[in-house]
């Protein structure tokens, strides 16, 4: 039941994407997302799609694994598409009573589905090729300048990495407690919504108790090892830019320019495509 959580899941590998500096990947993802929103034409989306396909190929992560990320937002995508399909004003194609589908609606729906799936795929390539630790390290270093305006970057990064680290532990724990309660005859899978919600009490209470216990233990262990926040703390694996990272920055810049050019100068007139 809780096995489907793939947020922040890492797929071990040795591809060039795996070895890139996490800061590059973070910025790359950010640029990708901004471009998707800023340059919303068919031509630009073809560029984005090609770029995405290249990245997926380079990453050497199996396609089925990447597409699994899409499954989680399937419902969101469906709802968005339906709303856009039926509620966009414009020239109607089909009209039944008060419900009507417009040309603009179809365009909007297609556009939204592509944008959402590109967003999810783009960010899952990043999380699949970057360990959560690298990711938070990258964030901490990349946002280091914010310390000057008194943003507690280190603390936030530490909290993030702890939170990410604890996702699998707590899922494991939840599965274990669930099995233990099922061994006592508990039933999590049938009954109405009230009954199901009630059935979760024997799962949630022990889970919270153990989460607090773990938090306590962790805090104590960190203090016992002399942790005192980010000031003066050195790293075991400091992030250093290499040549490939600069090359990657160049690729990202090229991508952004290409997207801009495609959006500005190429106008494809296709039926039912934005």
């Amino acid at each position: 039941m809780l096995k489907e959580i793939t947020i922040g899941q890492y797929y071990p590998g040795t591809s060039i994407l795996h070895r890139l500096d996490p800061r590059v990947k973070l910025l790359g993802t950010l640029v990708f997302i901004i471009c998707l929103f800023a340059f919303g034409t068919t031509a630009a989306y073809i560029v984005a799609g090609v770029a995405l396909a290249c990245m997926i190929t380079i990453s050497q992560v199996p396609l089925s694994f990447i597409l699994r990320g899409l499954r989680m937002v399937l419902i969101l995508m469906l709802v968005t598409a339906l709303f856009n399909l039926f509620l966009t004003p414009g020239t109607a194609i089909v009209q039944i009573w008060k419900i009507r589908i417009t040309v603009e609606g179809v365009k909007m729906a297609v556009h939204m589905v592509f944008r959402l799936s590109f967003l999810v795929l783009g960010s899952s390539i990043m999380t699949l090729t970057t360990t959560p630790n690298q990711l938070t390290d990258g964030l901490e270093k990349g946002l280091g300048w914010m310390k000057k305006i008194h943003v507690p970057v280190h603390e936030i990064a530490m909290m993030m990495s702890i939170a990410l680290r604890f996702i699998p532990i707590l899922t494991d724990e939840a599965n274990r407690i669930m099995s233990a309660q099922e061994a006592r005859g508990a039933d999590f899978h049938s009954g109405g919504i009230v009954k199901r919600a009630k059935a979760l009490i024997p799962l949630l209470v022990p889970l919270f108790v153990s989460a607090f216990r773990r938090a306590n233990d962790l805090a104590l262990a960190m203090e016992a090892r002399g942790y005192h926040g980010g000031v003066g703390r050195t790293r075991m694996k400091p992030l250093v830019y290499r040549r490939r990272d600069f090359a990657a920055y160049l690729v990202i810049a090229c991508f952004a320019v290409l997207m801009f050019l495609a959006w500005r100068f190429i106008h494809l007139e296709l039926p039912f495509l934005p």
Binding site: R176, I177, S179, A180, A183, R184, I201, P206, V209, S210
Partner: peptide, 20 residues
Amino acid sequence: RELRCRVGLVFQYPEYQLFD
């Protein structure tokens, strides 16, 4: 579910399943 009553399984560290 009837089988689960006939075969009682005590998990490792069963005290972590207490909730009431």
